[in-house]
């Protein structure tokens, strides 16, 4: 299982802030996971689409499309940050 977290605008659009997911076989990078989530359709298809400006983290470190993902990881998706 991996833990998926969604924040801010993305959390509201998807209607959830957290889920546990059994990592499907063949999904081993952040980019592949994002494409997998996009396949859920509706809000997921819109929010996870390649053209959307989303940031991500794996185990609380900034991650890119080719960042590896394995069972037990904490993966977060979120909009560009606006603190300070």
């Amino acid at each position: 299982m991996i833990t998926l977290l969604y924040f801010a605008r993305l959390r509201e659009a998807l209607g959830t802030g957290r889920e546990e997911l059994l990592l499907p076989s063949g999904i081993n990078t952040l980019g592949a996971l994002r494409a997998h989530l996009e396949q859920r359709g509706d809000a997921w298809a819109k929010e996870m689409a390649a053209g959307r400006n989303l940031r991500a983290a794996v185990n609380q470190s900034v991650a890119m499309a080719d960042t590896p993902i394995k069972d037990g990881d904490e993966v977060a998706f979120f909009p560009p940050v606006t603190g300070g």
């Binding site: 924040f7 801010a8 605008r9 983290a57 900034v62 977060a76 979120f78 909009p79 940050v81 606006t82 603190g83 300070g84």
Partner: peptide, 11 residues
């Protein structure tokens, strides 16, 4: 760098 890297979001 806090403004551009630290995960905070304002509503």
């Amino acid at each position: 760098f806090l403004k551009t890297r630290a995960p905070f979001w304002k509503k």
